[in-house]
């Protein structure tokens, strides 16, 4: 059981962003991706989730062996894929409570109603754990939220929806150190043999809290190095130049 990305090529307009990307995240593992700005990390996340702006030219993404391509974004989500957005959208007038309820309702068989009391109980429990005031439930999704509040709200949705695979795109960016710990704690409690994580980050710091099984380095639309936690430490200390030099040397 794994989330498997095979030789993925994707364009935006005429420009190729993903250039043959291979990556396998077995269930139960946490993988991290690091890479320079513009290397294509968010593109990878959005292509997997099915964003209509990107064109997949070749390759495949398999969720437990089933291809995601050909499925609508909502079908992919219901199949078990979750994306925590780098830039979560603001949706005026739609409360967090109603939004998450609609997402859970969409997972129930036709004609079955979500049990409201149970729903709120679980929502409040997760909000308490993330130290989100309960008043947030009646606020519009991300509308006027601070950067950190938006990220917390992404983790709340993750916790409520319990996907098989979660892609977290810079969920740590913009968080103060306390918030980072809370969010990492939120993710860690969801770590289980039934869940796979792909954590996109710029900061080695996060990986002290969410300790990854594998760290990957992305350069120009490809995974070019994979290794342990020490790879992240080396990137933090030395930047990306050495990798690019090595790549040039072997090219």
């Amino acid at each position: 059981m794994s989330l498997e990305i095979k030789d993925l090529h994707a364009n935006i307009g005429d420009r190729e962003i993903l250039k043959g990307l291979n990556l396998t995240i077995p269930k139960g593992e946490v993988h991290a991706i690091m890479g320079k700005n513009g290397s294509g990390k968010s593109t990878l996340a959005k292509v997997m989730a099915g964003h209509p702006s990107y064109e997949v030219t070749s390759g495949d993404v398999l969720l437990d062996g089933e291809s995601l391509f050909g499925l609508e974004p909502d079908q992919r989500a219901r199949a078990g894929l979750f994306l925590a957005f780098q830039y979560p959208m603001e949706i005026p007038g739609v409360t967090i409570a109603n939004f998450i309820r609609a997402a859970l309702q969409a997972r129930l068989p036709e004609g079955e109603e979500l049990e409201a009391v149970e729903y709120y109980k679980s929502l409040y429990a997760h909000m308490d754990a993330l130290k989100m005031p309960r008043t947030f439930t009646s606020r519009s999704v991300n509308d006027g939220f601070s950067g950190g509040e938006k990220k917390r709200c992404e983790v709340l949705q993750l916790a409520m929806l319990k996907p098989a695979y979660a892609v977290l795109d810079e969920t740590d960016s913009g968080l103060d150190i306390d918030a980072l710990k809370i969010v990492a704690e939120g993710v860690n409690t969801l770590r289980s043999p039934d869940t796979g994580f792909l954590v996109i980050t710029h900061y080695q710091r996060l990986l002290n809290y969410i300790v990854p099984d594998v760290v990957h380095v992305m350069v120009d639309g490809r995974i070019v190095r994979s290794g342990g936690k020490d790879l992240a430490l080396k990137l933090e200390a030395e930047g990306y130049d050495w990798i690019e030099k090595e790549l040039l040397a072997t090219a």
Binding site: E72, F99, A106
Partner: peptide, 25 residues
Amino acid sequence: ELFYMQARGIRKEDGRRLIVNGFFQ
């Protein structure tokens, strides 16, 4: 906005209605 909703598993048609509802709310 619609993609964000779909990425949470909400069907496109329901997402549209939620957004229209939000517009009025």
